[in-house]
Structures are given as C-alpha cells and as structure tokens.
Design a protein around this nucleic acid. Structure first.
Length: 761
DNA sequence: AAATGTGGAATTTTT
DNA sequence: TTCCACATTT
C-alpha cells in the first residue's frame, strides 16, 4: 500500500516493518532507527488491519522508552493507542497481577517494594529472626534474592552446595513468607509472580496468548532469563514476537541481562515451517564516518558477536581527537576549554556530553565547570520518589491505605519525632507478636501503659484523624492534608537546610495531581478479564470507572506509580547545559559532541571487570556505546595521574584507545600557555602531537640521585631548558637514577638525575 | 532523642 | 578523599 508510513524507510527497515506474521529478530545497530522501526511496525500492523490495538503488546525496559514509543505512535496513527499494552516489563506485570490478583494469590492492593523498601524489609526480618547482619549482610541477601528470582528460581529450586548458600536460601524463604504475609511484592517478584501465574493457569495463559497476536520487545539484548521465560509464556501458536536488539550494546550483564537470549531466540521462537526471520539494520543515521569507523574497529576486538557492521552515507567528517592529560585536573581543564570553544562555535551546550565510567569521576569535572561558569547537568543520583521526605509522605499514605503495613508504620511512627523511642517500639512489637497481629492493631489496642502508651495513643489518634479527613478527598488534596497533618512540612520548615525538602513535598502534591490527570490510561485499573473463565467474568465498561472512583484504588495506583517510576533525578532547568553522565546512562542518547573521559586501564576498562567472565568484552561494548553517541565530534581523554580514593594513581591509557586505528585518531598536544587564563579559546588551539608515551603502571616508588631530592612519578617538575613537565617513569637508583619526563613543550625525555637540573614545580 | 564520632567501602542501573 | 551507616555520647 502507498502509505506515507513507509516513506523514507531504507530497504532493511522496510523489510523489518512489513515482515509477515512471524517471529523475527531485528539486529539493530546503534543509530539505525530502531525505535522508528518498532513504532512504524505497530502503526503498519494497525493501518493494514492485521492487528487491532487490543492485540498488541509492546514491552520496554524504561518508562522513558515506553513513553516515547507511545508518543511517536500516536503521531503516526489516527487509531487510539488506548487498549494497547505498551509499557515496561514491570508495569505490564503490575497490570496483570492487579487484574488477576486472586490467581496470583495476592491481595488486590498489594504494595510494590522498591529497592530501599526491600532492604528495609530484609533488615526487619533479620531482627525478628535474630539473624546476624555481620555474617549475612542484608545487601548481599538482597542481591541473592534478586539474582535467584531473575532466573525464575524459588527457594526450593536454588542450588545450594555450600553452607553459606544454604543459609541464604533459608533467608530467602523467610523473606518470601514475610512478603506474602504483608502483601508486598518486590520488583523481581512482579515478573516471577506473573510468570508463575501464567504457567499455572492455562485458561489465563491461553486468553492472553490469543489476545496478543503481536508482541514487540525493545532492547532485547537486555532481557534476563525470567523475562525471556515470561515472553515465552505469552507466546502462543499464532503470536509473532518482534524482538529488537543489539548484542554489541549489551552492557547490563551485571544486573542479569542475558545476551544468550538473542542466540536462543531463533531456536525457541521458531515454529515448524515458520522459522524466525532475521533482519539486520546496519545503516547508521547518526554519526560521521570517522566516528563510525572507530566504533566498528573497536568492537571487532570482541570475539563473541552475532556480527554486524555499521555504515553511513554521511561524510567521513572530522577525526576522532584524543588528549592525554597529565592529571585528572588537566583533563577537566581540557574539557572546559574545548567545551567553551564548541559553545563559541555555536554548538548548544545540551548537545555536548561528557561521559565517564563511574560516577566518582564527575567531581573533578564539576569543579572545573563550576569555576569556569559553564552550566552543566549531572545525570544520576537520587530520584524524586526515592527521596527520604517523599518516602516518608508516601509511608503515611500507605498506612492510610493499608493499616497492616508494618514497614510504613515503622518508617513514620516517630517521624517527625514524637517521643516514640526504641523501647516503646520494642514493646509494641512484642504485643504484635503476642497477638499475631500487625503493628497498627497492636498500637490501637492501647495495651501499652505509661508514657509509651500515651505517645502511641496520640499517634493512633493522629492517623485516625488523618484517615477520616482524607476519606473521599481527591488524591492531591489527600496528599496535601497528609504532609501537613503529619507534621512533615512543619518539621522540614524548622530545619535549617530543609527548604529543598519542603519544595519536594509540595511538588508531591503536583505529582499526585498530574498522576490523576495523566492516568486516564488505566494503567493499574483492571480493564479486561478473560471471558473464558467464569471466575473472572468480564467486568465491562463500567468497572474501570468505578475502580477509578474508589479512592483506595487510586491511592494504590499512585503508590505503584511512585515505585515503578521513580521520577527524574532533578527537574530540567531552563537554559541549555552541558550533559554529564556515566556511559551507561548515555545509552540510547545522542549528542553533537561527546567527550569520553578517564580512558585508563583500571578505570575503563574497570579493574573489577578484568576478573569477570567476559568482563573486558562487556567493557568494550560499553566503550562502543560511548563512541556511537557522537554525531559530529568525539574526544577521548585520559589522565596519566588521577586522585582516586584519596590516593594518586598512575594509569596507562586504556587499551580501548590503542585498539582504534591510529589513522583515525588525532592526538592533541597541550596548549602553549597557562591553563584557564584564556577566555575565548578555540578548540583548534590544541595542537597536534604524536601518541604520548604513558607511564608504566605500578612504578610509583620514589627515586633519588645520590644525596639529591626525592622524585615521584606524576610529580610536576621544571627543567632549565625544557620547561614544565611531569615525571612519567623512573628507573635505576643512586648515580644511575633516571626519570622520564613528559615536557609540555619539549615532549618526552629521559634525564639522568645526577646531571639534569630538575626543580619541583 | 539529637549530636557527634568512627570505620569501612567506594563500578555500572532500571524497575 | 568522601560518603554512608552505625555507634557512642551528651
């Protein structure tokens, strides 16, 4: 059909979009129009009448990706995107479990534990069971549980050969029991529960298999074993799974992502006579040629690949530029200078990104940018719904919605402080244990005497007053009431640095308001229930509206929303700002210019990765992701010395620089004048140079000539003829002692300490 | 119950 | 170095 939908697609994209009703694996390279193909595929299925909105399920990893898909889709098709299941794995599982909570053996108003809540629950469990936090660090158990669940394993299925694992499995079982008792579901449990529910309920499974004739998966290389099994459960005999991914961008193995899913896909999703189709998208629409050449050359060093080579019809463009800074401070100064140059060339700051391997590296960069008055934005850190004050407010709301929520009660029973100390809590917990009840009923019983009992009674009265006052109130007003009546607002107003927290609490009211307005897409509200099973009779059109009107459902939906979508790190500010982030968080983004900093052995590739299975290859993929973020300009920097954990470390340049073809890389030499003094510096002032020599790793012990002063690698020195430089290597002792100095002007030289007149600089 | 001190760890992250 | 969690003090 002559649809504008398909206009401007290249042959491979077109092939992918218009594939017949069969499962397919789309190998989509960086910048190859992956999201476009995914959304166009859906629009095409709808436009050609091959699918109705109800028969489409599209799943992503992040809310951002789901939203983008939704937005782009509604621009492409006149058909209402409502009724389509587009969301994150967790969001869709939440929807399934709310709808079929009985089959899943969950209360309808089950609460979702985020990572913090989960850890708190584990600690609480340790207390009640007298488990030693020293011997079994709570975080370790958390990791253990998440790992097991991500492989689809319940405690009885986990293999435990050593005593430690056996204990962990026991703790895992205790944890499960506690979650079940409290109606709490952690992130991995959302997946596992809905997987098991589909597995155990044939009618339900068949219903959804019949319903979803098309399942589309984004970032398939990031799926874990459980997500893969989940997809298989939903795949019936006439379900076509359209999986889009790039094995070269698989950088999340550490959180369970299993690239092997891509290899197994063909085997597991082929049907007799209906093999899985494979389409490669290799044309890149993002980067200039040199950048792409560098990325291709780098990733060729990986041996375990499905095989793919990006190409572009764009010009070769500028060379990749590299700069070896003497120190992390100099590296930051370089970035500042070049960024200023780019800005004066008219590049918007928000189109420039500075990437690093680990968050700790942002500090030095931020410092330099701050002093140079370059506006910047750092990604990562605390998200809105993770902040303590927000969690406190939500805990009050949780307690209103579910009085038996011990976690919520413990969080706020004495916050703001109201005289309920550890002793009071101890007796409260004893009372609860004695009557086998939750903490709230125990507190209500008034059994505690004395001052403790009085304080508890005041707390109980306050919560009950709150519950009465908020009953029937619209969500935003209920939130407003709670933050005031709880004393949270007053508490933070009295705190000297509390203004931000007050602002956040007020923002929570807005968040509730926009949630109400935007949640017309009934994400958490039961909409469709299979007709097949009489126990799950179709609720019809009236039920969702009723569900929406039920304040407890709305509140639960809001709380789920808070857990599943933690919100932004910080509000986007008005003026354009330089983007600072880890390479991981840059995945999926693109910029005019990109700096990849800290390219040093030990940092990138990270030293911890060297001992991990396939660790270096994953680091290399990470570098590949970093390189392919750049459209026009790419700068690679390393520092010969760097302050790390309070100690100066001397690192050799990353192998990832060396692995790039030398003719693609232009090395820049330090500028010929003082750092930071120039105002309007042009990037071109950084001259060419040959590849710098690197200091030998680990050779940092001091050297000295006979009776002379002591010198160290990394030290700045001045020579009467050669000027300023940095000691990058040393050998010999006494009369034979020599140091290698990288001079700013004169290049790298070996000097005998006996004769050279070196002075500290 | 708040305030101050101390020890230990310090990739990467979404849900 | 710096941040955090936890312990001790006041």
């Amino acid at each position: 059909m002559a649809s504008p939908l398909l206009a401007n697609l290249n042959p491979e994209q077109l092939a992918a979009v218009t594939l017949p009703h069969e499962s397919a694996l789309i190998l989509a390279g960086a910048g190859s129009g992956k999201t476009r193909v995914l959304t166009t595929r859906i629009a095409w299925l709808l436009a050609t009448g091959q699918a109705s909105p109800l028969s489409i399920l599209a799943v992503t990893f992040t809310n951002k990706a789901a939203k983008e898909m939704m937005t782009r889709l509604s621009l492409m098709t006149p058909i209402h995107t409502r009724g389509m299941w587009i969301g994150t794995f967790h969001g869709l599982c939440n929807r399934l479990l709310r709808t079929h909570h009985r089959e899943a053996n969950l209360p309808q108003l089950f609460q979702i534990l985020d990572t913090q809540d989960q850890l708190a629950l584990i600690k609480r469990m340790y207390k009640t069971h007298n488990i030693d936090e020293e011997r079994f660090p709570p975080r370790q158990l958390q990791h253990f549980i998440a790992g097991a669940k991500e492989e689809g394993l319940r405690p009885n299925a986990v293999e435990a050969d050593d005593p430690l694992s056996r204990r962990q499995v026991e703790h895992y079982a205790l944890y499960e029991a506690m979650c079940q008792r409290e109606g709490a579901v952690d992130f991995a449990e959302l997946l596992l529960r809905s997987y098991e529910m589909l597995l155990g309920h044939e009618g339900l499974r068949e219903h959804y298999q019949r319903r979803f004739s098309h399942i589309l998966v984004d970032e398939f290389q990031d799926t874990n074993i459980l997500q893969y099994k989940w997809l298989r459960q939903l795949t019936g005999t006439h379900t076509a799974v359209f999986a889009v991914g790039d094995d070269d961008q698989s950088i999340y193995a550490f959180r369970g992502a299993n690239v092997a899913n891509m290899q197994h896909f063909e085997r597991d999703f082929s049907r007799p006579e209906v093999p899985v189709q494979l389409v490669k998208l290799e044309q890149n629409y993002r980067s200039h040629g040199h950048i792409l050449d560098a990325a291709n050359a780098l990733i060729k060093h990986n041996l375990t690949r499905l095989g793919k080579n990006l190409w572009t019809s764009e010009a070769k463009g500028e060379p990749v530029r590299a700069f070896a800074a003497p120190s992390d401070l100099d590296e930051a100064a370089f970035v500042v200078d070049v960024v200023k140059g780019l800005a004066s060339d008219g590049v918007t700051l928000s189109e420039v990104a500075v990437l690093y391997r680990s968050n700790a590296q942002s500090r030095v960069l931020e410092h330099a940018l701050f002093n140079a008055a370059v506006p910047y934005r750092v990604y990562g850190g605390m998200r809105f719904f993770e902040r303590a004050e927000i969690k406190h407010a939500l805990a009050y709301l949780r307690l209103l919605a579910a009085p038996d929520d011990d976690g919520a009660l413990l969080r706020i029973v004495n916050f703001p402080p109201r005289g309920i100390g550890a002793r009071t809590l101890e007796s409260l917990q004893d009372m609860a244990r004695a009557t086998d009840s939750a903490l709230w009923p125990a507190a209500c019983s008034g059994a505690a005497g004395g001052k403790a009992g009085a304080c508890l009674a005041i707390f109980v009265r306050m919560i009950e007053a709150m519950r009465a006052a908020t009953a029937g109130l619209p969500l935003p007003e209920a939130v407003e009431h709670v933050i005031t009546a709880s004393g949270l607002l007053a508490h933070y107003r009295n705190e000297k640095d509390g203004q931000d927290r007050v602002d956040n609490l007020e923002e929570l009211v807005n968040a509730a308001d926009s949630f109400l307005r935007e949640a017309d897409l009934p994400v958490d509200i039961p909409v469709d229930v299979p007709r097949a099973d009489p126990a799950l009779s179709e609720t019809g059109g009236a039920a969702p509206a009723a569900a929406v009107r039920d304040p407890v459902s709305v509140l639960t939906a809001f709380l789920s929303h808070a857990a599943l979508e933690a919100g932004d790190t910080q509000a986007a500010e008005g003026r354009p700002a330089l983007q600072l982030m880890t390479v991981h968080s840059a995945k999926g983004l693109e910029f005019h210019s990109v700096f990849v900093t800290g390219l040093e052995e030990g940092l990138f590739p990270h030293e911890n990765s060297l001992s991990e299975h396939g660790g270096v290859e994953e680091e290399r993929r990470l570098m590949y992701v970093a390189l392919t973020r750049a459209r026009r300009r790419l700068y690679l920097t390393n520092a010969q010395s760097r302050m790390l954990h309070g100690q100066v470390r001397y690192n050799v340049p990353s192998r990832f620089i060396t692995e790039l073809p030398a003719d693609l890389v232009q090395w820049l030499a330090p500028k010929r004048h003082r750092f930071g003094a120039a105002i309007d510096v042009d990037a071109s002032e950084w001259g060419r140079s040959r590849a710098p020599l690197a200091p030998r790793a680990g050779a940092s012990s001091p050297v000295r000539a006979q009776d002379g002063p002591e010198w160290r690698i990394g030290q700045s020195v001045r020579h009467t003829r050669f000027g300023l430089g940095i000691i990058i290597d040393a050998e010999g002792r006494g009369a034979d002692a020599r140091v290698q100095v990288n001079f700013r002007e004169a290049g790298v030289k070996w000097l005998a300490l006996e004769y050279a007149k070196l002075a500290a600089a």
